[in-house]
Amino acid sequence: MHYVYILYSPSTDRYYIGETAFVSGRLEQHNSGFYKNSVTKIASDWEMFLEIECIDRTQALRLERFIKQQKSRKFIERLKSEPKIVDDLLLRFK
C-alpha cells in the first residue's frame, strides 16, 4: 500500500505534497529535519493535512505529480473538503 500525503505548516502557511509507503514515520522525519535538502526543512511544525491511500506506488506517484502540477492552494484545500474529488482522481489514475 502506498500513500500520497499532504502536510501543512502553520508557521509558514505552506503545504507539502509527498508519497510514501509508511505515512506514520514520515511526518516525524519531516519535522525533525531528516531530509536536509527538502522544502520541509524550513519548519518543524508540519502537521498531517490529508492522507490518500493508493493501490500501489505507480498510482501514488501519478496522483502526487498531478496534485503538484495544479500549483493551487485552493485545489489542495478542496481535496480535503470535497472527498469526491479524491475518489475521482484515484479512479483516473488506477
Score class of each variant (00 low, 15 high):
Ser81Tyr: 10
Leu27Pro: 00
Gln59Val: 02
His30Phe: 01
Thr12Ile: 08
Ala60Val: 11
Ser9Trp: 03
Ile67Thr: 01
Leu27Glu: 11
Ser11Cys: 08
Arg73Tyr: 03
Ala43Asp: 05
Leu61Cys: 09
Ala43His: 03
Trp46Arg: 05
Lys71Gly: 00
Thr40Glu: 00
Asp45Thr: 02
Ala21Met: 14
Glu64Pro: 08
Leu63Arg: 01
Val86Glu: 01
Trp46His: 09
Leu27Gln: 08
Glu82Ile: 09
Lys41Val: 13
Arg14Glu: 15
Asp56Glu: 06
Pro10Arg: 11
Ser44Trp: 00
Gly18Cys: 06
Pro83Asn: 02
Tyr16Asp: 03
Tyr16Pro: 01
Asn37Lys: 11
Gln29Thr: 06
Ala60Gly: 05
Lys74Trp: 05
Gly33Phe: 10
Arg57Gln: 14
Ala43Glu: 06
Glu19Cys: 14
Thr12Ala: 13
Gln70Asp: 04
Gly33Met: 09
Glu77Met: 15
Cys54Val: 11
Pro10Trp: 14
Thr58Pro: 01
Leu63Ala: 05
Lys74Ser: 15
His30Glu: 03
Tyr16Glu: 06
Gly33Pro: 08
Arg57Phe: 00
Gly33Arg: 05
Gln59Ser: 03
Ser11Lys: 06
Gly33Asn: 07
Val86Gly: 00
Met48Tyr: 07
Lys80Ala: 11
Ile52Arg: 06
Phe34Arg: 14
Glu77Leu: 12
Phe22Pro: 02
Arg62Phe: 09
Glu51Val: 13
Tyr16Val: 00
Asn31Lys: 04
Ser72Leu: 05
Pro10Ser: 08
Trp46Asp: 01
Arg62Met: 14
Ser24Cys: 06
Lys41Cys: 09
Gln29Gly: 04
Tyr35Thr: 04
Ile42Asp: 03
Cys54Met: 13
